[in-house]
């Protein structure tokens, strides 16, 4: 359970469509990594899957039901989302934040229950936040803060977890910690996990399925071996890279070494320097 797919999903802000007519299937009970350059629509897609953004056309489905036909609360009990870079109100403690994960289980009248208490304690425990539970979220380091938010999503006890860049801002150690945690949640509890990551080696190593997006379109989708290839990297990120095979696990490792000539992908800050002599204008 926890199958997600989309059918001709079109997502747009204002007039411009970011994702147009997208069909994807997220494998159930697996870890899926969403990769792609800045601004290609990863967050937009995730928001579309979680019903945070109303589609211009098509729909996303959870277990065969259109998410737009499901009661809000019910969806929130089955699918949790951690948006990119959320900001907690000043002074909110970790524990209070994590307790908010129980929101979908409470109506107007329900009292705080044992099940709530257990879910919160478990989420704090799994993320290693027990000792920090009474600290204000805004007084934590970036990595601790990220784990606090993940704990909130865990307390929601959903079979599907969507996470937008859960490892950004973390050091190497804490990045691996979060990735291990997500894989454990997947392996031990069978949760479907979808995460946006920028580090392709992490994507390859910690996910079963990789979806590479470029300009709102799926360029490649499949196992890490199928997706992390020099052709895909060239097309999606505009970089030349060596692809090695991890000696232990056989998953691909990529080592980018140059920018492609005539790349479509360019750092935004370089636009103003796009000198006339390159003769290449990408709109």
């Amino acid at each position: 359970m926890g199958e997600i797919c989309t059918e001709r999903l079109t997502l747009a802000y204002d007039e411009r469509a970011v994702v147009a007519g997208l069909d994807i299937v997220i494998p159930t009970g697996r870890v899926t990594a969403l990769v792609g350059p800045n601004g290609c629509g990863k967050s937009t897609l995730l928001r579309g899957l979680a019903r945070l953004l109303k589609p211009r056309g098509g729909s996303a489905y959870l277990d065969g039901r259109s998410i737009w036909r499901m009661p809000t609360r019910e969806l929130a009990r089955q699918l949790g989302i951690l948006p990119q870079a959320p900001v907690a109100p000043e002074g909110l403690t970790v524990r209070d934040l994590v307790a908010q994960g129980r929101y979908p289980y409470h109506g107007w009248l329900n009292r705080w229950s044992e099940a709530d208490e257990e879910a919160v304690a478990r989420a704090l425990d799994i993320t290693g936040m027990v000792d920090l539970a009474h600290r204000p979220v805004d007084a934590l380091s970036g990595g601790q803060r990220q784990r606090a938010w993940i704990a909130m999503a865990l307390a929601q006890e959903t079979k599907v977890l969507l996470l937008d860049e859960p490892t950004t801002y973390l050091d190497m150690h804490h990045q691996l910690e979060v990735l291990h945690l997500l894989r454990r949640l997947n392996r031990e509890e069978g949760r479907t996990v979808v995460l946006v990551v920028h580090n392709l080696n992490h994507a390859a190593r910690y996910s079963d399925h990789v979806v590479a997006l470029s300009d709102g379109k799926v360029v490649a989708a499949g196992t890490p071996q199928e997706v992390v290839t020099s052709e895909v990297l060239r097309e999606v990120f505009g970089v030349e890279a060596h692809i090695l095979s991890d000696p232990d696990t056989g998953v691909p490792l990529c080592i980018p070494y140059a920018l492609c000539e005539n790349s479509n992908v360019r750092a935004p800050s370089m636009d103003s320097f796009a000198a006339p002599h390159t003769g290449h204008i990408h709109v």
């Binding site: 019910e74 951690l82 908010q100």
Partner: peptide
Amino acid sequence: LGEDVARGLG
């Protein structure tokens, strides 16, 4: 907690 987080929580 923010619009997206609140909606994600149902």
